[in-house]
Computed example of a mutant assay.
Amino acid sequence: MIDYDAILFDNDGVLVEPPTDENLVDAAESAFRAVGVENPDATHVDEVVRGVTSDSLRDVCSVYDVDPAEFWHARDRHASDAQLAEFREGGRARYDDVAAIEDLAHDLGIVSSNQHRTVEFVIKFCEFEDLFDTYYGRGMGVEDLHRKKPDPYFLERALDDLAAESALFVGDSESDVVAAHRAGLDSAFVRRPHCVDTSLSTEPDYEVDDLYDVAKIAN
Score class of each variant (00 low, 15 high):
101 I>E: 01
70 E>R: 01
75 R>I: 04
85 A>V: 05
94 R>E: 14
74 A>S: 15
97 D>K: 02
92 R>E: 10
103 D>T: 11
78 H>D: 04
74 A>M: 14
94 R>P: 11
84 L>C: 08
90 G>W: 02
107 D>G: 03
91 G>F: 04
94 R>I: 07
94 R>H: 10
95 Y>L: 04
106 H>A: 06
89 E>V: 08
100 A>T: 09
107 D>H: 11
81 D>S: 08
72 W>C: 08
107 D>L: 00
106 H>W: 06
78 H>P: 00
72 W>R: 02
84 L>F: 06
79 A>Y: 00
102 E>Q: 10
75 R>E: 13
86 E>M: 13
98 V>E: 11
78 H>L: 04
96 D>T: 05
94 R>C: 11
95 Y>I: 10
76 D>I: 06
88 R>H: 11
69 A>T: 05
80 S>Q: 04
79 A>F: 02
73 H>M: 14
109 G>H: 00
84 L>I: 13
85 A>Y: 07
70 E>S: 11
102 E>L: 06
85 A>C: 01
104 L>H: 03
103 D>R: 13
93 A>Q: 13
92 R>D: 07
69 A>R: 09
99 A>G: 12
93 A>M: 11
106 H>F: 01
108 L>C: 02
108 L>T: 01
93 A>K: 08
89 E>W: 09
97 D>G: 01
78 H>N: 02
86 E>S: 14
103 D>N: 12
94 R>A: 15
79 A>E: 03
77 R>P: 00
88 R>T: 12
97 D>L: 03
76 D>G: 01
81 D>A: 15
69 A>K: 09
96 D>E: 15
107 D>C: 03
73 H>T: 15
80 S>H: 07
103 D>G: 05
77 R>D: 04
101 I>M: 10
78 H>F: 15
69 A>E: 14
91 G>P: 02
92 R>W: 03
74 A>F: 02
70 E>H: 06
78 H>W: 07
107 D>S: 13
100 A>R: 06
102 E>Y: 04
72 W>Y: 15
100 A>Y: 01
104 L>W: 06
76 D>T: 14
98 V>H: 05
97 D>T: 11
80 S>F: 00
69 A>C: 13
102 E>A: 09
99 A>R: 14
95 Y>M: 08
85 A>D: 10
81 D>N: 07
87 F>L: 10
96 D>Q: 12
106 H>G: 02
95 Y>R: 10
72 W>L: 14
102 E>F: 04
101 I>S: 08
82 A>F: 04
88 R>P: 04
77 R>V: 04
70 E>N: 06
88 R>K: 13
83 Q>P: 00
106 H>E: 12
94 R>F: 06
86 E>F: 05
104 L>F: 09
78 H>S: 07
79 A>L: 02
72 W>N: 06
93 A>C: 12
94 R>Y: 08
105 A>C: 07
71 F>I: 05
80 S>Y: 01
72 W>A: 08
106 H>S: 08
84 L>W: 03
88 R>E: 15
101 I>V: 09
100 A>P: 09
71 F>C: 06
76 D>N: 10
77 R>C: 01
